[in-house]
Design a protein around this nucleic acid. Structure first.
Length: 504
RNA sequence: GCCCCCAUGGUCUAGCGGCCUAGGACGCCACCCUUUCAAGGUGGAGAUCGCGGGUUCGAAUCCCGCUGGGGGUACCA
């Protein structure tokens, strides 16, 4: 059942309000909307709902568009790219809302309200005290022309409110949940046009969705309670209703409340800066509230476009699971990305930390980084760990404690003999042929009566300055013979003075 | 308070009346691999499908109630 009664080409939109960064909940709604558009060869539109002058934050427009681009959710119409239904900022469409509000007024679906914010606040307070449900008392619903003129003469600018039917019900259909019915007498005469001339969400979203030819309204489930208002508006204008699909909320890991945009950690850009891959982020987000079957979990964007099904999105709220996201990220780093690709993403970070200079593709440095990244990627959970993980392939390891060279249950003197013998072996065999060097060093360990580990660990520390590294022989190969020997020499000197101090 | 939505292991979920002695993934535990750390492999613990009523030959799957959780209740979105 494809839900689109008159078979119009699919047009969907993501419509954030510029009041902060794009958070993961919004990102998932955007993703689902985008996938739906792409799989139906439809249009994905970005519209900025900047109708709240008080909460408006200009910088968030950039951060939202940056987030969407980073995730790979490119819009066909909207800011920067334009389109036939623009402008795509609601603040630039004010006349449209005014016109439509007037139409409603003329048709008797709306009325002017002159109540002051103070009266409204007092009313709410009174209702609260009396234990009655809060809500506008429709004080201005039936004002006469004379009364309205009197308020005007006092210089009061009215707001325009929706004249909600007093009885009956309003039913709508949600793609994920089915029919939802609301009793009209529980609905409010919501403000449609504020006294500052800006529309509220309710008016703006309906007018724009219609004007932009939106076929499917996707948004967070926090909008379900106002769906009847929107339905009444669509009907009042005489427009054919779009299909509604409310995405479930993403809850905090502990399940207590939604992951709100107020939480900095939930910002998409923060994830980017922490070293998450957009591919992993997209893949994880797709799996919050949706699953293809009981086997496949890894999806490229193209596969998601092919396999995603909006109607199969679960209507129940889901908690955000950082552990699984981290696993996904590391899985992409280790198993999905090509090494060159991975290295290409680490390089900017290396430059930033001054570990390399320019490293154009094909250069020696570039090749070295690719080799090094290939060796350490199985330990990389985040892109940001890259520089530290491969630093010793690029620059001399910082000074380390001589004690690191001496494994447990091993005599420093044995370590010293081992390192010297190993140095000689490396000088002779070189590091290029891993197998040959391994064979030779194992023999050295044998001759000295050492276990492999008792010889290998000191070499590892000597060459990398740390006790954890990729396989010893691949590490030596990439560090190369010359630098390996120099570091062995350094370690031998270091150990000698260490032993001397111990002897004193 | 009122309105709306939701409900399968700790978490994300598969399941859409019999294939379920409920499958997968993350996390957790053990073992294997091993020159370190990872990665990987194998196995395991963990769910009387929130509770109670129905409907049915038969219910995790359909209906009702309850409980619990979430959301909304602004001249914010």
């Amino acid at each position: 059942m494809m839900t689109n009664p008159d078979n119009r080409p699919v047009r969907v939109r993501f419509a954030p309000s510029p009041t902060g960064d794009l958070h993961v909940g919004g990102a998932r709604t955007a993703l689902f909307t985008y996938l739906f558009a792409r799989q139906h060869d439809g249009a994905f539109i970005l519209r900025i709902e900047d109708t709240d002058q008080k909460r408006y934050d200009e910088s968030s427009i950039t951060s939202i568009t940056e987030s969407l681009r980073w995730l790979g959710l490119h819009w066909d119409e909207g800011p920067d790219v334009g389109g036939p239904h623009g402008p795509y900022f609601q603040s630039q469409r004010l006349h449209l809302y005014r016109e439509h509000a007037d139409r409603l007024l003329a048709k008797g679906y709306a009325y002017e309200c002159f109540c002051s914010p103070e009266r409204l606040a007092a009313l709410r307070e009174e209702q609260r005290k009396a234990g009655r449900p809060p809500g506008y008392d429709r004080h201005c619903r039936n004002l006469s022309d004379e009364e309205r003129q009197a308020f005007r003469d006092q210089g009061i600018t009215p707001v325009i409110r929706l004249k909600v039917p007093l009885d009956g019900t309003t039913s709508g259909y949600d793609l994920l949940r089915g029919a939802i019915t609301f009793e009209n007498n529980k609905l409010e005469d919501a403000v449609l046009l504020k006294s500052d001339g800006y529309p509220t969400y309710h008016l703006a979203v309906v007018v724009d969705d219609h004007d932009m030819g939106i076929t499917h309204v996707t948004r967070g489930e926090e909008w379900i309670p106002s769906m009847p208002l929107h339905l009444i508006l669509w009907d009042a204008f005489g427009w054919e209703r779009p299909v509604f699909a409310h995405m479930p909320t993403i809850l905090k890991p502990d399940g207590k409340g939604k992951l709100s945009k107020r939480e900095g950690a939930a910002s998409v850009l923060v994830f980017r800066d922490k070293g998450y891959l957009p591919e992993a982020m997209v893949n994880y987000l797709a799996l919050v509230g949706w699953a293809y079957d009981d086997r496949q979990e890894i999806f490229s964007m193209d596969e998601l476009i092919e396999k995603f099904d909006l109607e199969r999105v679960s209507p129940s709220p889901a908690r955000f699971n950082y552990e699984k996201l981290d696993w996904m990220n590391q899985y992409y780093i280790n198993h999905i990305l090509e090494v060159e690709d991975l290295a290409g993403r680490v390089i900017p970070l290396l430059k930033q930390e001054g570990l390399i200079g320019d490293a154009p593709e094909g250069s020696e440095t570039y090749k070295l980084v690719v080799d090094a990244v290939g060796l350490v990627k199985d330990k990389m959970k985040f892109l940001t760990e890259g520089p530290d993980l491969i630093s010793y392939f690029l620059v001399e390891p910082p000074d380390y404690d001589a004690g690191l060279l001496v494994p447990r249950k091993t005599e420093p003197a044995d370590v010293l003999r081992g390192l010297e013998a190993a140095r000689a072996a490396i000088a002779e065999v070189g590091t290029e042929d891993e197998a040959a060097l391994e064979e030779r060093l194992r023999a050295v360990a044998d001759e000295l009566g050492l276990k492999a580990g008792q010889l290998f660990m000191p070499i590892r520390v000597a060459v990398t300055g740390r006790t954890a590294s990729p396989g010893l022989f691949e590490t030596l190969r990439v560090v190369n013979t010359e630098r390996s020997l120099a570091r062995m020499d350094r370690a031998i000197e270091k150990l000698k003075s260490h032993v001397a101090v111990e002897a004193d």
